[in-house]
């Protein structure tokens, strides 16, 4: 009896490895590790009514013309130091008003890449400006801010982006 037990072969598990290998290779091939990069934006609801008047001090005008040149308050700005220039402009703007509106005049012939470069630079500039203001107000960083502080901050300072398509 004892001998018999010893002779008993173990389950043949050789093919399990093959099956697992096959699945493994499939998932290795379909996996993409690189996360995609996005720029999130919120569109405003459609509005065809009369335009409301806005305090001139709140407006920062940035234009993208048909030759893909960027003009901040009428001054041409190169792409390399775009984010820095916009940050400077925003810092000046929040001295005049706590709720600046960034008015984008976008030429309809400008290309999408220039537009994305501009949007990404503006988003970054807003982030930098907000971070430095938070540092000033609460002596803390954006990640460590409490919800109450965030509400207070948003009431005190906010940025809006307004896009207009121009054809001239």
């Amino acid at each position: 009896m004892r001998r018999r037990k010893k002779i008993k072969t173990s389950n043949n598990s050789g093919s399990i490895a093959d099956i697992a290998f096959l699945l493994l290779i499939f998932f290795m091939v379909t996996t993409s590790f690189e996360r995609e990069n996005y720029i999130p934006m919120n569109l405003p609801p459609l509005y065809d009514g009369p335009s409301s008047k806005v305090d001139k001090n709140r407006i920062v005008t940035i234009a993208l013309n048909g030759n893909n040149q960027i003009l901040i308050e009428g001054e041409e700005t190169g792409f390399p130091n775009l984010s820095q220039s916009i940050t400077n402009t925003l810092n000046e703007a929040i001295v005049k008003s706590n709720h600046p509106i960034i008015k984008l005049n976008l030429h309809h012939e400008a290309n999408y890449e220039a537009y994305m470069t501009l949007i990404s630079a503006i988003k970054n500039a807003i982030k930098i400006t907000k971070e430095s203001k938070i540092q000033e107000m609460f002596t803390t960083v954006l990640e460590k801010i409490t919800p109450e502080q965030l509400d207070k901050f948003n009431a005190a300072i906010s940025f809006k982006i307004s896009e207009t398509e121009v054809k001239y």
Binding site: P40, M41, N42, M116
Partner: peptide, 17 residues
Amino acid sequence: KRLLQELEIYRLEYLVK
């Protein structure tokens, strides 16, 4: 973008590199 506004889809994410 206008089409999305008409359909009341307001949240966009532009894919970039």
